[in-house]
């Protein structure tokens, strides 16, 4: 579904990604872990071209996306993204946040989009907040709305960029529950996270990224239980 070949990303002199090769198949839940500044968020943001790549190729459903010829807006419609800082649209109600893109991009009529929005809000447990504005929501609620907004475009892949890092501890659970539910529905997902327990539980595969390369990858049981790479061991010993 996503094929990454020799992906490199430089910010000026700073080499953030130094050659990543990955293949992500349909139905996989890939957790990306690693120390801060390792390039894991940059890797995720390259996947939907919020960051331009310096070198290498990214294919989505066999189509090369990091080229000026690619219709990036079309490709992004297949990939939902959830941000650390939620990035809800503060001038729109919760429902409008969700329906804006599907209606504007002619994926649905306004009536269909409204119906879908209510469905999604029920799914994330926020149906009663449909007409509220984001400023009146808690962090956990905002993030659940953000997930609903991304799902409204019926994406094939969901990208999560540290979805719980900006939340108060007591709100982490409600957001993880929604993501776990998606995993059970076999949604293809790439999740950059610091929640090791969560990664262990929902991921089908874990990538440990450090210094701009994938140092180690394995099933969660193996990677957390029996890490091979020295840097993985060091990292896990620090945080577990």
């Amino acid at each position: 579904m996503i094929e990454v070949r020799n992906l490199k990303k430089h910010f000026g002199q700073n080499e953030v990604l130094r050659g990543i090769d990955q293949h992500i198949s349909k139905g996989e839940v890939v957790a990306v872990i690693g120390p801060s500044g390792s390039g894991k968020s940059t890797f995720l943001r390259c996947l939907n071209q919020l960051e331009e790549t310096t070198e290498g190729e990214i294919y989505v459903d066999g189509e090369l996306i990091n080229t000026p010829k690619a219709d990036i807006n079309k490709i992004r419609q297949k990939m939902g993204m959830v941000f650390q800082q939620f990035n809800l649209f503060p001038h729109l109600s919760v429902k409008k946040n969700i329906t804006l893109a599907p209606v504007l991009l002619k994926k649905m009529t306004p009536e269909e989009a409204d119906k879908k929005a209510i469905e999604l809000l029920e799914r994330v447990g926020l149906a009663e907040k449909a007409d509220d504005y984001p400023s009146s929501l808690s962090g956990g609620q905002k993030q659940r709305v953000a997930i609903a907004r991304a799902l409204a475009m019926d994406p094939e892949i969901m990208l999560f960029d540290e979805p719980t890092s900006a939340l108060d501890p007591e709100m982490v659970g409600e957001v993880l529950k929604v993501i776990k539910q998606l995993a059970e529905e076999k949604m293809t997902m790439v999740i950059v996270t610091h929640e090791m327990g969560f990664a262990r539980e929902v991921a089908t595969r874990v990538l440990f990224i450090d210094q701009g390369v994938v140092m180690e990858e394995n099933t969660p049981e193996e990677l957390f239980g029996n890490p091979q790479n020295e840097r993985t061991k060091l990292f896990l010993s620090k945080i577990l």
């Binding site: 807006n73 419609q77 993204m81 941000f83 804006l100 907004r149 991304a150």
Partner: peptide, 18 residues
């Protein structure tokens, strides 16, 4: 306006002008 707003819009598939 925070950059995240642009990123959120673009990540949904909206064009730059939308």
């Amino acid at each position: 306006i925070d950059r995240g707003q642009t990123e959120a819009g673009r990540s949904l598939g909206l064009s730059a002008s939308q």
